[in-house]
Amino acid sequence: MKKAAIGLYVLITVGLMIWGFYQAIYVAPNDAMQGELSRIFYYHVPTAMLCFLFFAISLVGSIGYLTYRRGNPLRAQAADALALAGAEIGVIYCTVVLITGPIWGRRAWGIWWTWDWRLTTTLVLWLIYVSYLLLRRFAAGPQVQTLAAVLGIFGALDVPIVYMSNRWFRTQHPAPVFGGDSDSGFKDPLMLHAFGWNILAWFAWGILVLCFRYYVERRQQKIAANEAQEALDA
């Protein structure tokens, strides 16, 4: 039953991604100004929005670990696995954003990269969470979870400050598609459809990979706990 549910979810996710691809590449009309080039936004913007979601999941996991680590070790372990999985998937989504952005920028602006506030903020966000993953790699032993949770909270605190400081600094990135000025928003409903389907597809895909990563991490925690127990018994 459980396997059938997982299989069904994988099928739905793959179906959504194929449908999203079809919508973005074949159904949505060309942009009036940019032509075919605008189609990269159906990947760039959803991954950018979702990477914040996964970093938020990681923050929840970090706070959860620190809250439960004394009173409820089992729940704390689950929270730690969630923090790690969220950070890893977030870094992958953020990497996709940082790769698709310059591809677009090369054609639209004529340059691969510019130190615009939104680009800088995304890059700094990526650096912070890569340093989080590096800490998890370099620290050994049982304290790694506590240290990582603390760094996760520090990193999340830094995000709004980085965002504000860069916003004051300089701006070149296009204004937000949603919630910008009166000229913003998609003019063609087909574009909005393609956009919505891709957000859904990448959300489903991210959650799928997150669950797999969470499951693997939980397995590793259990193996490590068993090994520690065996070493004690021997």
Binding site: V124, L135, L151, F154, D158
Partner: peptide, 13 residues
């Protein structure tokens, strides 16, 4: 590796 990314906004300011 962990100090510099967190310090970036303060460095900018």
């Amino acid at each position: 590796l962990i100090l510099f990314p967190i310090f970036i906004p303060a460095l900018l300011a």
